[in-house]
Nucleic acid binder design. Structure first.
Lengths: 344, 344
DNA sequence: TTGACTTATGCTCACTCTGAGTTTAATTTG
DNA sequence: CAAATTAAACTCAGAGTGAGCATAAGTCAA
């Protein structure tokens, strides 16, 4: 322990700008959607982007300590300004402060630290047709995360070869072993067969960061000023570090679903159990066993049946309608839904 | 949705200072400890505290965007400077930006946003005797969180009456109901009997925030500039928002323990199963069933037995020594330990 | 040396939870 | 009406969990 460095005090410390970004999630038509703000106009207004840049971004804006009493209050302001939504659920995700990962920034002397938030809504937003703001499918940005129709092709076709190239390119044996291990943990990539052994659906961020580190996603090329002749993995990129924040949100939501009743924030007030199941499947990215899901949900006391029936859905026996019992929060310490994979 | 407010751009936004604080946890003698830096000297060096203030603080310092490539790098620097430890595990907890909760700050124009980190170590630190820096028992700051010897007296004696006063003092029926509900969710406080029904050991932060909101902890009185003739709940206070950060750390660690093998960061390389159990108990704050704990740990594949035996512990049959199998991280997606309460 | 005491470790047992179905019911569509 | 489709009730075996008993292997004091 050295003496406390009296030299750099809080007050002398170079100031920092805090960027607040929101991953606003909704599930529409059994697909997980995230609210996207596209185009230079928005980013220029915020004064962050150079005029010729363009791309997808999350709703975001700077934290203004004079206006905003808390970070969340600031974030809510930006969401209100930039979306037609008023999400009922907000949760802070993570604070990123990496140098060089906020590309497009004009003034490099002011470092931008970004605080990511997750917001959930069941609103449509009625902005389907706009080019500038819309709900985008989050699997457009992370195609390898959607296992609902089995293992995504992109894994064999692009990711696995890309990672193997990256592993082979390690400078020494130690580094090579380290890369191999990371690829195994994140993507279940094994040496032996060309099979993926395990897949932890919550490791969305870890996987993205690995691809970033291996220069397999556009942002890595962009941030490091490399040429774009690299072979990239398919999947839309985003401005700044927004895809990383989206990855964080996906992982967090997938995890939280299992021990807190957050899915209901994504549901209308009344819903069928199949609806609920499809919503959960959209989020976690794999299919579930229908009968067991039903048993789990009904047995958890999280929902109650409502008298009427529903048929509009599709051909078949009409399903009962359910609603979320808000008072479970009082009864049980940690209501949620334990899920188990049922791939294929 | 209004038009993007072009008026406030990222670059025009008032700058903010980021404070990095570390909750460095160790378990010593079956007690959970947190590294404390006490005294004005330290805080004055950082330029945050007025000269006549004093108290317990976490190791902390400002984030310097010129020196530090990432937030975590900055934090590690401060931990290295202010403690004799080098923790093997770091995890970001939360970013707090509330106005008025960073008391002692001289210059109110520069808002301090604090990013809290959790760090785990098994080092003693050999600073036992110092008055200025030491490991403090975290239950000194949160006496109501230690249920290892049954329900803490402080709940009946101070907290329950305090909360009831707070509920009764609500201005209208709606607010009263809201307060009642929060007290029930956080402390299991029920209307009917004077019994606590449920206790979610992970809700450490929620409980602290409730006590803060009810003006039952010193920091609330301090931050709001109130008189100290309030009846406060026992428990040491901390400088700035550090007790809140500690609460966040406790809750997070208690949760993480159950699904990630983080306990082992707190253990020496070789340990007995009882040692491991006592460490877990210290963290989660309640006792566990010995035989079942052993079955769980041995069956999880997280540990392997080492040849030698150990006896120094106490009178009784010597226990086998175990060590953590680092490679479980490769085999299983989410190794951890599911725990169940066994109070009394 | 023995008996009391202490801690470790092995094992049982009932009960719940979970994964994976089968069967029957209630509709729509061709 | 038959075929297709979705809902919903029920079964069953195996794994996991909570609780406790029994035995093993030491220490300590008389």
């Amino acid at each position: 322990m050295t003496a406390s460095s009296g030299s750099s005090s809080v007050l002398n410390a170079p100031a920092v700008v805090i960027g607040l970004s929101a991953v606003v999630v909704a599930v529409q038509g059994h697909e997980p959607k995230v609210f996207i703000v596209r185009g230079a106009e928005h980013a220029l207004a915020a004064g962050v982007m150079s005029p010729n840049e363009d791309g997808d971004a999350l709703p975001f804006g700077p934290f203004d300590p004079l206006q905003h009493k808390t970070l969340e209050e600031g974030l809510r302001t930006w969401v209100r300004d930039q979306t037609p939504l008023s999400p009922g659920y907000f949760e802070q995700l993570y604070t990123f402060g990496n140098r060089g990962r906020y590309a497009g920034q004009r003034d490099e002397t002011k470092r931008v630290v970004s605080v990511g938030y997750l917001a959930l809504t069941h609103e449509k937003g009625s902005v389907e047709k706009s080019e500038r703001v819309f709900f985008g499918n989050w699997y457009d940005y992370f195609p390898w995360e959607d296992w609902r129709d089995g293992k995504p092709r992109i894994l064999q076709d692009a990711i696995e070869p890309g990672l193997k190239r990256w592993i082979a390119a390690a400078e020494n044996a130690e580094e090579k072993e380290h890369r191999r291990m990371r690829a195994q943990v994140c993507f279940g990539l094994t040496d032996a067969a060309d099979a993926f052994s395990t897949w932890d659906e919550e490791k969305v961020l870890e996987r993205y960061e690995l691809l970033y580190g291996a220069n397999l996603v556009y942002e890595a090329i962009r941030d490091k000023g490399m040429k774009v002749d690299y072979v990239l993995v398919p999947g839309r990129s985003m401005l700044y570090d927004h895809r990383r924040i989206l990855a964080t949100a996906m992982g967090r939501l997938r995890g939280k679903l299992k021990y807190r009743p957050v899915v209901f924030e994504l549901m209308p007030s009344e819903f069928t159990l199949l609806n609920l199941q499809k919503t959960v499947e959209a989020i976690v990215g794999h299919r579930l066993h229908k009968q067991n899901f039903r048993r789990l949900v009904e047995g958890s006391g999280m929902v109650e049946e409502v008298a009427g029936k529903k048929s509009a859905e599709a051909g078949g026996r009409p399903a009962a309608l359910f609603r979320f019992r808000r008072d479970v929060l009082l009864e049980r310490p940690a209501p949620g839904m334990k899920l188990s994979a049922n791939l294929g």
